[in-house]
Amino acid sequence: MQATLRVQRFDPESPETSSSMQEYQIEAEDHFTVLDCLIKVREEVDPSLALRCSCRASICGSCAMKVNGHAHLACKTKMTAVAPQGEPVTIEPMGNQKVVKDLVTDSTLFWDKIRQVDPFLQPRGPEPEEEYIAPNAAMLNLITPMGCIMCGACVSDCTVLEVDKNFLGPAALAKAYRFVADPRDNADNQRLTMLNEYGGAWDCTRCYECVQACPKGVAPMERIMELRDAIQTAGMPSTIGSRHVDSFARSVARAGWLDETMLAVESWGKLNLPKLISNAPVGIRALIRGKFPKPGPLHHKRPGAENVGRIFKRHEAARSGVAAAAREQH
């Protein structure tokens, strides 16, 4: 098959300061991956093309790059999957990281974030003579986060990092979960305290980009949601994020549906005057246009709301046992 690759080029030594797109056409075998095509370009067409790769088997995590706008491992992405009719394929370096040259990015940001979450086991007490023993069942939910190969695809496509580099990001948060969920680790309190702060677990926007991008099924966003659960279950100090979940649950449990106005007020805090005042114009505009959601007692109950409340009660009862055990541990 004829393959057409549109590759983003950038040379830091060139007087041209911005990147540009360069098109290559090569003959590709049907089994070729995007990486096979790029290597063929480098070896037969243009030796100046810079890219990273090593194992070519989805293990080393070196060849993450954007293929048609989203991060993929180039060695795991078949050309026939992204260009079934031989369409041009756009290849760019990963997002949210500085480009060193062409498809090579600087991974400093990625590793800085990973280091911030203390990515090592911190057990308590004297070191055992042999290995640390953990029950098999307690380790099962670590299998997915331990599958991370540090390729950075999730960081590339993170929509929060696009606007705020202070965010820990999906890879580091998934790594943090890996230790929070490890029964041998005893630093949960300090870990969860840090994750409960600005830039931590609550700043994720739940966009699923990282779940989609991860080539190893780590599903970082789902790990972040588990961290939020762990933060609340451990009784960490309330934040706007945790109050947001609680207020949401309270209104649905009471009325069967969401009380949007009280969700805002209770999340910010009823006495958080700066926040309430700064958002007053938004509420006034909605009021003027006749679309201000009725709050509190005016927020009517849906028929059968008592059945919804019953489901919540049973769920909360089951969770309270888990929460007590978690507090005991902390």
Binding site: R206, R228, D229, V245, F248, V252, G256, P303
Partner: peptide, 21 residues
């Protein structure tokens, strides 16, 4: 009488609650 889906927020309290609703 259908309830809120949970919008991904209630799912932070565990998937089963939202799945039941």
């Amino acid at each position: 009488g259908a309830a809120c889906t949970g919008a991904g927020v209630l799912q932070e309290k565990g998937l089963k609650l939202g799945d039941t609703l």
